[in-house]
Simulated scan of single mutants.
Amino acid sequence: MNLYKVGKFLFTVILYPLYRIKVIGKKNIPKEGPVIICSNHISNLDPPVVGITSGRNIHFMAKEELFKNKFFGKILRNVHAFPVKRGMKDRNALRGGLKILEENETLGLFPEGTRSKTGEVGQGLAGAGFFALRSEAWIIPCAIIGPYKPFKRLWVVYGEPIDMSSYRENKATARETTDMIMKEIEKLAKNPKMNG
């Protein structure tokens, strides 16, 4: 049994009607090749929401603590999640993320690293910039615009691929690159049409 497909199906049939999910810009996500989807983070439901709306099978980083329970950890690995240590450079997680991209898969990141308590887009961690600079992946900004309230519209907006060539050629830092990605996410999140 493919747990990822089962989970994707269940979340689709539950979350789409529950939150009246509306997706914009899905066509911006390449169907093939390495992709990094960078999204804001407002709820624990963000990973499955990005997973069911993007059209790609996504590998998400998840905090290491979630893998300590063997049963739950096995489930997470079966749905393409992999552990990352928070608050420090985790070389294994960085290598694992690059390997996913080298295999032309999709990496899902929430650069803020934790959920926003205000709903505003916060500062991102440098890891997103690291992956963007060290791979040939397309970078797709994503904004989830809530709130997560039953039967109230939830928007998922995918922006156009970010051209990383000048950042890679000019040897931009991971911090500079992450800041640029976060600005693109913030632009999507502040679309007045979807905020009331």
Rank of each mutant, 00 (worst) to 15 (best):
F151Y: 15
G97Q: 05
R134L: 06
G129W: 12
S166K: 14
L133S: 04
L107F: 03
G108F: 05
V157G: 09
L133N: 09
F130S: 00
R115I: 10
A174I: 03
W138F: 13
I144P: 01
G127L: 08
Y158C: 06
E102R: 12
A172D: 00
R175V: 04
I139P: 00
A143R: 06
T114G: 15
E112A: 04
G159R: 10
W138G: 00
Y158P: 05
M164F: 01
I139T: 02
D179P: 02
G113C: 14
E176I: 03
K89G: 13
G97C: 10
I100T: 00
A174Y: 10
N92Q: 13
N92M: 09
E120M: 15
G108Y: 10
F131C: 12
N104L: 06
F151C: 09
V156Y: 11
S135Q: 10
M180L: 08
E136D: 15
T106H: 12
E112N: 02
G124S: 09
K117C: 03
E169A: 13
I162Q: 01
K149Q: 08
P161D: 04
E112K: 08
G108H: 11
G127E: 14
M88Y: 06
A93Y: 01
R95I: 14
E169D: 15
A126E: 10
S135F: 12
K149D: 00
A128G: 14
G87S: 10
G146N: 07
K99M: 07
R153I: 05
K149E: 08
I100C: 05
G96N: 15
K85R: 14
G146F: 01
G97F: 05
E176F: 00
G124Y: 11
T118E: 01
G124Q: 02
T114L: 06
I100G: 03
E176Q: 15
I145W: 02
G124N: 11
F110V: 08
G127K: 01
R115A: 06
K85L: 12
P161F: 05
G119N: 05
G119E: 05
T177Y: 08
A93S: 14
P141M: 07
A137Y: 04
A174R: 06
V156C: 12
K152M: 09
G122Q: 15
F151L: 14
R86Q: 14
L98G: 01
G97Y: 05
K85Q: 13
G113H: 03
R153G: 01
V121F: 05
E176R: 02
L109V: 11
F130Y: 15
E136K: 12
P161N: 08
G113S: 12
P141R: 12
F131G: 01
I139G: 03
G127T: 02
R134F: 04
A126K: 07
R175S: 02
I100K: 04
V157N: 07
A174T: 10
F130T: 07
S165D: 10
P111G: 14
K117P: 01
K149A: 09
E176C: 07
D90A: 11
T173I: 03
S116F: 15
F131R: 10
D163V: 01
L107G: 08
G146W: 00
G108A: 04
M88T: 12
A172M: 10
L109S: 06
P147V: 08
T177W: 09
A93R: 08
I140F: 09
A132G: 04
